[in-house]
Design a protein around this nucleic acid. Structure first.
Lengths: 190, 190
DNA sequence: TTTTGCTCTTGACAAAAATCAAGAAATTAT
DNA sequence: ATAATTTCTTGATTTTTGTCAAGAGCAAAA
């Protein structure tokens, strides 16, 4: 079983190995270079990306700064979900932080999964509920934790990221400035 | 058409009027008193609530304080989604802020919808994508806005709430203390 | 009506976090 | 290897937000 097969299986629990192989066959592997854009805001997002290796940063620009909403690591998906599903304009820009290997599926091919796997809508729904729950948790951290607590919480669960992507982006996705982030780090080392 | 029928239709877009009537018939109207609990954390959430009138507060307790995650108003749903779908323990407690009329559907009845309306899983998925997007936006406000900006943004979109529920809960769901909230309000009046 | 709780506001102060500016340190390009 | 660029750190300072404590305002209950 390839890695992508394993991930699909663990996220969606599709039981038939042939179904999984069919799904995976709809993804095309591509390599992107550091700095390449997979999506730009205000465009239509017609594909779903899966990170095989590397890191994708999803962000939006405000008047004065870029806000990093999320960084997708190996084994995770990245897309502007609303745009992908409803064909509205994207709110997010997605950019590779390092040279990365990305499995991509187009919206047209994605639709085929629903036609070929009868229980797909149900599995997709369950997957979305898990995503929803993760976002609920993330909101909760902003309502209940200080910057330092958010740092520690995130660090415990994402140690690997810290020496592989610019820290300023992690600071942004945690909702603090790079300076505050740096000071918290210093404190943790003592 | 009853109000609940209208809401179901606008959220899920079910076309057959008979399907909508069937779905609505699975909801039972109940009245709850101010302070009543519809769900307590660590219990299993086996129902989905729809606010016909009144307000429901969803919150969780930390060591030292209660964090209000959301307040559901007329026309919106409230449940511990993860618990409702996966039958895990609830993270949220749900309590009525005032005497309220609530349409409730049990998990058992909810499952019937999927059996009776063929495209239900698909509609449910689309609904969830919209919920997901709303949470994404909410996270973005915490990454990009000050307390005052969050206040103004929320106020513009929820003017009605401010004279109907204790302000401390709105402060909490915006991620600030009641005192900060009060000071921001004073400033806006000048 | 009076009392009893809540809830909200205010002030004084403390702590947390942002801003600005300058340099290190590290990475990338030449 | 060196230069150029980007990223990270640090200090000084300001702004924002939280904490604590007291009191005012309201609403519910006796």
């Amino acid at each position: 079983m390839t890695e992508l097969e394993n991930y699909i299986k663990s996220y969606f629990g599709v039981v038939e190995i042939n179904d999984i192989k069919m799904i995976v066959s709809l993804f095309k592997i591509t390599t992107v270079k550091k700095g390449d854009f997979l999506l730009k805001s205000d465009k239509y997002c017609d594909k779903l990306s899966f990170v095989q290796s590397g890191f994708l940063r999803m962000f939006a620009s405000t008047d004065d700064k870029e806000i990093t909403q999320w960084i997708s690591t190996k084994g995770y998906f990245s897309t502007d979900l609303a745009s992908f599903i409803f064909e509205t304009k994207s709110r997010w820009t997605i950019q590779a932080l390092v040279d990365s290997e990305i499995f991509t599926i187009t919206k047209d091919d994605y639709k085929k999964i629903g036609d070929l796997v009868p229980q797909w809508n149900e599995l997709e729904k369950l997957f979305l509920v898990r995503c929803f729950t993760i976002l609920e948790d993330r909101i909760f951290t902003h309502l209940s934790m200080s910057a330092e607590e958010r740092y520690n919480f995130f660090f415990e669960n994402n140690k690997g990221l810290f020496n592989q992507v610019p820290l300023q982006y992690i600071a942004s996705l945690l909702g603090m400035t790079a300076e505050t982030f740096s000071r918290i780090r210093k404190k943790q080392l003592l």
